[in-house]
């Protein structure tokens, strides 16, 4: 997993509440063999018209938001199913941070697992950031996980809370596997012991 330390980038405004996982990635795109490559299906029902062509009114089809790395939204972002395809699609598009007043539980967990930082900030602040984001390329927002602040384009710093363990994992780019691999020597010695006492487990 790519570490998340300081991110400065374009923020896309998505002034909606209850953005659900079916909106983030519709169910018809789940019969796939990949977890990358889903970026083209991100918000498919918003992004494309029925004939498959782009809907120019949708924010992610506009410049500079095609390069957005941050998404600003309102309450209950990521509600719906547990599909890990939702963070996979965001990440594949290039979004590494979502800022909203709150998040649905499973999406919140799945985001951390996949290297996306969900930042919870009060609605008024999200509304301000939404206005900042609308300024487009002139309004780069910084998300500093090390210092736990969001920096507005005018330099104002807004502190945010994050679970210390999750923060540690993101800062160091440790996914669950990365975490477990820190115990590699314990796994090695467990295997050595088992190989000696229950060799049939290793005969294949």
């Amino acid at each position: 997993m790519r570490p998340f330390t300081v991110l400065t980038g374009i923020a896309a405004p998505l002034p909606l509440a209850n953005v659900d996982t079916d909106q983030i990635i519709p169910a018809r795109f789940l019969k796939t063999i990949a977890r990358t490559g889903l970026g083209k299906h991100l918000f498919a029902n918003f992004r494309y018209k029925e004939d498959g062509t782009e809907n120019p009114d949708f924010v992610l089809n506009q410049q500079p938001y095609r390069q957005a790395e941050i998404l600003i939204a309102f309450e209950n972002f990521g509600c719906g199913s547990s599909r890990e395809h939702a963070p996979w699609a965001l990440l594949d598009f290039g979004i590494r941070c979502v800022i909203a007043p709150d998040f649905a539980d499973i999406f919140h967990n799945n985001s951390f697992k996949n290297g996306i930082l969900p930042v919870k900030l009060p609605r008024e602040i999200c509304a301000q950031l939404m206005e900042d984001a609308k300024l487009g390329a002139n309004a780069r927002i910084t998300v500093d996980l090390e210092r736990q602040v969001v920096v507005r384009p005018n330099g104002e710093e807004i502190p945010f809370e994050v679970d210390p363990f999750r923060r540690h994992c993101l800062l160091n780019g440790l996914d669950d596997i990365g975490q477990t691999l820190q115990h590699a020597s314990a796994i090695d010695s467990y295997e050595a012991k088992q190989r000696a006492t229950q060799p049939w487990l290793f005969a294949s």
Binding site: E84, D176, I177, T180, L181, H183, A184, I187, E191
Partner: peptide, 16 residues
């Protein structure tokens, strides 16, 4: 197990 856990087992031969 789920797909993330499949990957976890492939990589580490363990599960949390």
């Amino acid at each position: 197990i789920g797909t993330s856990e499949v990957e976890h087992v492939l990589a580490t031969q363990t599960l949390l």
